[in-house]
Design a protein around this nucleic acid. Structure first.
Lengths: 179, 179
DNA sequence: CCGAACATGTAAGCCGTTACATGATTTA
DNA sequence: TAAATCATGTAACGGCTTACATGTTCGG
């Protein structure tokens, strides 16, 4: 259950409400663990019942903002989880499935999809590079900053690799272009 | 629904039964789109009902092998799907979540998990390199071969990238090692 | 002919996605 | 004060995982 622990992390960085959490997710942890607001509200309710967080003021149900903060039990749980043995990540990439299919039923116009995907990776790379310039220019970062920078660099590297891969794919597809 | 189309691809490459399909998946398409035998049986039943495949002989229910082959409608569907607009892939990587958490609650012994993960990537890389030597030594591959090779190379590249990333991570974690 | 391995299948639970609903707050 | 927006939540569905169940074939 990575989402609950991602939420604990975000709430430790800065206590806030569900909607603010959803906004912050969209431009930080959500880059490598996306979540919609529905998921976030459901999960917040769950981990509150577990005693890992508490919601502070209103209690008056719907429509009112509820701010959460992490309880000691939540921080302990997060510490425990960080070093828990990791089960192998499951990779799932649709483009690779499509390429295998194209090898059988092609040539097709798959190149159009690959081009679109390359554009998305390029846009994302540019965005990440902006974040890097903005948030990680400090010449003498502390430990936490270096770790967060490392995570961003993983994203940057990943986008670059996919752009390269799309280029290679396009050159192979082009050789027997259906037109 | 990538799984159904991955199954169509595998069945086009070579018609076979569910259990054989599950075996073959484990050492080809399953590298980038894993599936258990339960998923595969369920999905086969589904796409047979859709009229994309047909099962040949026994029909006598449980325990008996059932061989499937792709119908023309299935091949048409696969062709359609290959060029269908792709929705952005969703990335989900637990290690990156852990690193963000470690930046807050650390230092911890996360390095142990990172080392384990690096070992897994190294093992997988070695395996992929063996496959490459075995299946892609042909000096003059045809289009389909080149595309399949490309997919394997994506896997090789990915493993190398993760190994590098684990190394960098370990060096940053080591600087403030708990002990 | 009996037990092990094989082949297929069922069931429950979790997580994620999508669509929709309702109460509160802001703004024109 | 009505409409738009914000904040929270419900409901339904689908795919994946895990555990289990049932029938068939094969090897000793």
């Amino acid at each position: 259950m990575s989402l609950s622990h991602a939420l604990l992390t975000a709430l430790l960085e800065h206590p806030c409400s569900g909607s603010e959490l959803a906004d912050r997710f969209d431009r930080s942890i959500g880059y490598f663990w996306p979540a919609t607001h529905q998921q976030i509200y459901r999960e917040l309710a769950g981990i509150e019942k577990s005693g890992w967080i508490e919601s502070l003021p209103p209690e008056s149900g719907r429509g009112r903002k509820r701010d959460y903060r992490v309880l000691p039990a939540g921080e302990a749980e997060l510490k425990r989880w960080v070093v828990e043995p990791q089960n192998p990540r499951t990779v799932r990439d649709e483009l690779l499935v499509r390429l295998r299919a194209e090898a059988i039923v092609g040539p097709t116009y798959l190149q159009v999809g690959v081009e679109q995907r390359m554009l998305r990776h390029q846009a994302r790379l540019a965005h990440y590079l902006n974040l890097e310039r903005r948030d990680f220019s400090n010449p003498d970062p502390d430990r936490a900053q270096r770790l967060r920078h490392l995570v961003l660099q993983a994203g940057i590297d990943s986008e670059r690799r996919w752009i390269d891969f799309c280029r290679t794919t396009l050159s192979i597809l082009a050789e027997t272009n259906p037109r």
